[in-house]
Write a protein that binds this DNA or RNA. Structure first.
Lengths: 245, 245
DNA sequence: ATCAGTACTTGACATGGATCAAGTTTTGCA
DNA sequence: TGCAAAACTTGATCCATGTCAAGTACTGAT
């Protein structure tokens, strides 16, 4: 806890404004009129880089802030009664962390870094003040929540309807799509999460995930070497995965 | 479409104010200071009762309003490429419809009545105006969205981790819990949805749902007669279902 | 560079749930 | 009230995926 406190610098260093950020096009301020973006930026704190494995928010903790990933990636999960992990998803740069906290004022899942993770932090107090006078931000926060809800439902549908290969294909196609939006290669990437994490996310076992990747490889859809993925036939994956928008 | 338009009366008839509504304790205005509740109420339109099978909102349609069920129940679903239904969930009195619309300004799933359905309607335009000046309402809408998100994730975890009996147990325990919050019996109720709907919601086949109910019956946890359910051992269900808060 | 620990792959086998196929009950309508 | 259609239950079979067990390939530390 004290580690996390230390990790946060008070206020935004002038050199790293949102306007200069690589994520400009997809991050929170992207859809805001410029004077709202400026007001938001003044409230944003920039966190120091976290090392892999470090937890950014814990379930049950009061919701002090909304976070946005600046670089790296993170895993959202909750711990079941049996001590197992339910992996809710993976967070990429420009994506928000902590939205479910609005439900009760406390976070309901854990988020920990998979790679070195840097992030921005918007204190809830400030956010609420800003919401009072920035209609664009109000709209944007609602949009973000609606989107998260919609995605969660869509993914649940996918889980309910697809077999193992379909789920893994969907996972890869979704990841590929999200990477592309960030200007990264949709065909060459490195998975930051383990097979076990993927499995727990998709409701499968790690062996089944491994086998699914194996068959995709054999069919010539992928090249797989440990966590490095090359997508050779994106269409085949997308078709099996049930269509990513 | 014209049917739906006709079904909506302009303004709230004086006799059915929120203060007199049976759902007072759990509905949207429940957590609002009274002057905010009054302002909200002035914006609420009351829809005429819809007959079972009638669709309240359609996927792709612009989000004109947020709805709240007053009585009856509804099914939220989307239609897949193959023409099948993915059932996202069931809506009970006091619960909101259309929240995912905030994502893009359009509804992303269909909602249709399972029983005779009456509802309230909050036009989005009015809602946005109110959000500008009612901090309590702002908070409440965020809470609602956060809650929906959290529930969706939790349910997905349940799907990913439980077997067929666990899912059906969870479904019943959840329903029981939600009915209780509405002042209805948590142990004696009538399912408004078909086995097929339950199955599509849980990612199972209707045969498997039927068999799960059969085993619960045999174990003495339930009495089942068609759609009438008596819960004899709520604890057993809750335990299998993985714990409902 | 080597080694130990972890992550991953692959194989054999068991099983829960899907599928196919009757039968039975319930419901809505005449 | 009775009939037809829909909803549901029950049974038999098969297959995908979980489980258990080895073996291989990374990765990071010394």
């Amino acid at each position: 806890m004290s580690i996390r406190r230390q990790a946060i610098e008070a206020g935004a260093p002038p050199g790293v404004s949102c306007r200069e950020c690589a994520l400009q096009a997809i991050c929170l301020p992207a859809h805001l009129p410029s004077e709202e973006a400026r007001a938001l930026e003044a409230a944003v704190q920039r966190g120091r880089q976290l090392r892999p494995g470090v937890t950014l928010v814990r379930a049950g903790e009061p919701m002090g802030a909304l976070f946005v990933v600046r670089s790296g990636s993170a895993k959202r999960y909750s711990v079941t009664l049996g001590g197992g992990e339910q992996v809710h998803g993976f967070v990429l740069p420009g994506e928000a962390i902590g939205l479910e906290g609005f439900a009760s004022g406390r976070y309901t899942c854990e988020v920990s870094a998979l790679e070195p993770l840097s992030y921005c932090r918007v204190p809830i107090r400030k956010l609420e003040q800003l919401l009072e006078r920035l209609p664009g931000l109000r709209h944007e926060i609602l949009r973000l929540l609606g989107q998260a809800l919609d995605e969660s439902q869509r993914l649940r549908g996918e889980l309910a309807q697809s077999d193992a290969r379909g789920r893994v294909a969907h996972f890869l196609a979704d990841l590929s799509h999200r990477l592309a939006r960030r200007g990264l290669s949709p065909t060459e990437f490195r998975l930051s999460m383990s097979r076990a994490d993927i499995a727990r996310h998709l409701g499968l076992t790690l062996e089944t995930v491994s086998r699914a990747l194996g068959t995709f490889k054999r069919e010539g859809w992928l090249r797989v070497r440990a966590r490095d993925i090359s997508v050779l036939q994106p269409d085949a994956l997308a078709a099996l995965g049930g269509g990513i928008a």
